[in-house]
C-alpha cells in the first residue's frame, strides 16, 4: 500500500512568531511539525505494520514550504515515514489554500499517486481545514474528513467521525483521502533508533518546474486572499476577574457562553 502523509511546518505559537511587513508569517522562526499531523503519521505507521510485510508498503511524507520545513519532514521520518518529499520554491510563498492544494495535487501526481492520502484535520497556524477537501477534489478521489479512527480493509477505507453526540462510521473505496483529528490514536514518541535511522532516509526536494507548474499559478499574486494586516490579539493572561459577592458572576458566565456560541440549541436539558 502506498500512503502519502501531508505534513506542515508551523511556527511554535506559544514560544512566539513574527509577521513580515506584508502581513505574511515569517516562517524562519522557531517551528515544528504541526501537532495534528502527528496523528496521520501514527495512523500510517500502524497501517503499514498491519499490512503483510511482503505487500511492499511505503509511507511518504509530503510538505510544501520553505527550507525550514525540512524539519517537519525529518520529524515525520522519525515517526515512521520511509521517504520525504519537500516542495520548495520561492514562488509558492504566500499561496492561499487554492494555490497550496494545486501544488500538492501536482506533487502527488508526480509521485504517481497514492492508495491513501492522510493528513491532519487542520493546522495550528491558519487552521482553515480547507486543503484536505480541495486536494481530494483536485485529485478526484473521495475524502473522509475529521476522522477519529480509520481502518483499511482490502480496497476500502473505513473512518469514524465523532461528534458531540454521534459516531458516524463511513467507508469509501481506495484511493481516498482521510483527514484525522486528535481523537485518533495517540502518536508514539519516536525511539532513539527511529530518530537515528530517520537521518539516513532520503528527502527529495522539488520546485515548481519539476512539477510542471507555472510560478504565476500559485503564490502571492495568484492568491485570492490578501492579508491586509495582522495584530496581536488581547493576551489571555490576566483575564477578567469577577467577585461573586459583589458582581453578577452568573451573568458574566452566561454572557461568555453566549458570546462564544457555546450554549446548545434549546438551552440544554
Amino acid at each position: 500500500m502506498k500512503i502519502i502523509v501531508l505534513v506542515k511546518y508551523v511556527p511554535d505559537i506559544e514560544v512566539g512568531y513574527r509577521f513580515k511587513p506584508d502581513g505574511r508569517l515569517d516562517r524562519s522562526g522557531e517551528g515544528l511539525l504541526n501537532q495534528l499531523d502527528e496523528y496521520p503519521l501514527e495512523a500510517a505507521r500502524r497501517l503499514v505494520s498491519q499490512v503483510d510485510a511482503a505487500a511492499d508498503s511505503t509511507v511518504t511524507a509530503l510538505t510544501v514550504g520553505p527550507d525550514e520545513a525540512e524539519e517537519a519532514i525529518r520529524r515525520a521520518l522519525q515517526m515512521g515515514a520511509d521517504r520525504g518529499v519537500h516542495i520548495c520554491d520561492q514562488a509558492i510563498a504566500g499561496s492561499d489554500a487554492l494555490g497550496t492544494s494545486l501544488v500538492l495535487a501536482a506533487a502527488i501526481n508526480q509521485l504517481g499517486g497514492a492508495d491513501l492520502i492522510l493528513c491532519g484535520a487542520s493546522s495550528a497556524d491558519s487552521a482553515t481545514s480547507l486543503i484536505p477537501v480541495q486536494l481530494a477534489a483536485r485529485l478526484q478521489i473521495p475524502a473522509l474528513t475529521g476522522a477519529a479512527s480509520l481502518a483499511v480493509n482490502g480496497a476500502q477505507v473505513t473512518a469514524c467521525r465523532l461528534t458531540d453526540n454521534a459516531m458516524i462510521e463511513s467507508r469509501t473505496p481506495l484511493p481516498a483521502l482521510v483527514s484525522l483529528t486528535d481523537q485518533a490514536e495517540q502518536p508514539t514518541y519516536p525511539s532513539a533508533k527511529a530518530v537515528m535511522l530517520a537521518r539516513r532516509k532520503p528527502v527529495e526536494v522539488y520546485d515548481l518546474a519539476d512539477l510542471g507548474l507555472a510560478p504565476s499559478s500559485v503564490g502571492c499574486d495568484a492568491a485570492r486572499v490578501k492579508v491586509l494586516g495582522v495584530e496581536p490579539a488581547i493576551r489571555r493572561v490576566g483575564g477578567r476577574l469577577v467577585d461573586a459577592s459583589s458582581d453578577d458572576a452568573v451573568a458574566a458566565l452566561v454572557a461568555l457562553l453566549r458570546d462564544n456560541a457555546l450554549i446548545p440549541v434549546g438551552g440544554g436539558a
Binding site: 495517540q186 502518536p187 508514539t188 514518541y189 525511539s191 532513539a192 533508533k193 527511529a194
Partner: peptide, 15 residues
Amino acid sequence: VLVAADFPAGLGTTF
C-alpha cells in the same frame, strides 16, 4: 524507550 518505543503514554508528553 530507545528501541521499542513502548512506554506509558504520559511519558510521551513529558518527553
